[in-house]
Simulated assay, not measured.
Amino acid sequence: MVPSAGFDELKAWASRLPSLQLSERAVCDLELLATGAFSPLDRFMGREDHQRVLDEMRLASGHVFPIPITLPVDPGPAIRVGQAVALRNAKNELLAVLTIEEIYSWDRDEVAQKVFGTLDLRHPLVAEMHRWGSLNISGCLQVLQLPAHYDFQDLRLTPAQTRDRLDEFDNQNVVAFQTRNPLHRAHEELTKRAAQDVNGVLLLHPVVGMTKPGDVDHYTRVRTYKVLARRYYDPGRILLALLPLAMRLAGPREALWHALIRRNYGANYLIVGRDHASPGVDSSGKPFYGPYDAQKL
């Protein structure tokens, strides 16, 4: 994030720069890069990071990171090394300035096969990638503001804020639970037992960014989580916070990614569910991933 001392000057400069309108997915990624949720990653991936993530699930530094976080664009006069571009959302609001340091092409089929294990267009992300630009860009990010959210603001905690809130529980163990669905009775039981087994606190951490097409909207889901947390859990054992993540539905790789993200939010355990982060079945009616592939990874 840009410090307040240089904010006005950078904003004025950014108003004269070429602009890139970010997709909803890229806006989610930018927010989590800016807040440290993707730490140690602090920018959209360059070529070396991208290739090693595809091949080894690691950044060039050697840190484990299983999902490529990229900013795909179409070729254009502003897409050149050394050019600074203003990053804006769909409402044309200025979010950040990116100074381009790398431009590289990428292979859709390679990404689809290595990250998602399929080329089947029934997979939402495989289909979506066909609409992405043919080039990825990377470089230093100067974030002027986070995307504005007007709902559930008291629950939209950054990683630092979440860690501070968890410190108030004075408990060294934190079990995170990832969900994109309303909780049912079995979820309640398994989350309570998981926290009890490690004598820890439950971080109930639902995704409120991009989930699977057809999922229950987050406005409805969050209201149910609030009631459950207030009426059915020990208030000394639970923290409800929201995660503005754009899911990739990458099954086993995504489960590991979820664990790394929750570590940055202060958790040292993650509950990995059956068929974790799955998009469902492929064009032939078979599941994209086995029910316990995530646990095996």
Rank of each mutant, 00 (worst) to 15 (best):
V174W: 02
G46E: 04
S61L: 08
Q196C: 11
R180M: 06
A186S: 14
S134W: 09
Q178I: 13
V85Q: 01
L71V: 06
L10K: 00
P182E: 11
L59E: 00
M45G: 09
R43G: 06
L94K: 00
I271S: 01
R221G: 02
L135W: 15
I137L: 06
E254I: 09
G214P: 05
T99R: 13
Q142N: 08
H218W: 09
D120H: 07
V198M: 11
F65E: 00
W257Q: 07
F288W: 02
R185D: 12
D170Q: 13
L155E: 00
A277N: 04
P124A: 08
E48P: 02
K286I: 03
R180T: 07
E93M: 06
F169L: 02
M129P: 09
S134P: 07
G82F: 05
E93S: 12
Q145D: 08
Y232Q: 15
A277K: 00
A5N: 14
S134T: 13
P124N: 10
A241Q: 04
A267K: 00
R262V: 12
G280T: 03
R262L: 08
Q172P: 15
R88M: 09
H130Y: 14
S105V: 12
V143K: 02
A14L: 02
A241M: 07
A194E: 06
V207A: 09
D217N: 06
D74Q: 15
Q295L: 11
M129C: 12
L30F: 03
R237G: 01
A267P: 01
H205V: 07
E24A: 08
E168W: 11
Q83D: 09
P147G: 05
V272E: 01
G280D: 01
P244S: 09
R163V: 10
D55R: 13
V115S: 10
R52M: 13
R122I: 09
R58S: 07
C140L: 10
A127D: 14
G209H: 00
Y225H: 11
E128R: 15
F152W: 02
A14W: 01
E189W: 14
A186E: 10
I103M: 14
I79L: 12
L157V: 11
K296Y: 12
V198T: 14
G62F: 12
V2S: 04
G290F: 04
L59K: 06
Y225L: 13
V115L: 12
Q153C: 10
L166W: 09
R248C: 09
H184P: 02
A277R: 03
V201M: 03
A86I: 05
E93K: 12
I238E: 06
P66Q: 09
V208H: 03
I69H: 02
T220C: 02
L144W: 06
L144S: 04
S105P: 10
R221K: 03
P279G: 03
S134E: 14
M210I: 15
P206I: 11
L242H: 01
P244M: 07
D293S: 15
L98G: 01
D42P: 06
D120A: 06
R274F: 04
G200H: 09
A37W: 03
H50L: 15
V143G: 02
E128N: 14
R47A: 14
G273E: 04
L119T: 13
N181A: 14
V216G: 00
M210N: 11
W257H: 14
S19P: 02
R180Y: 08
E9W: 04
P40I: 10
L249C: 05
K286E: 05
L119F: 10
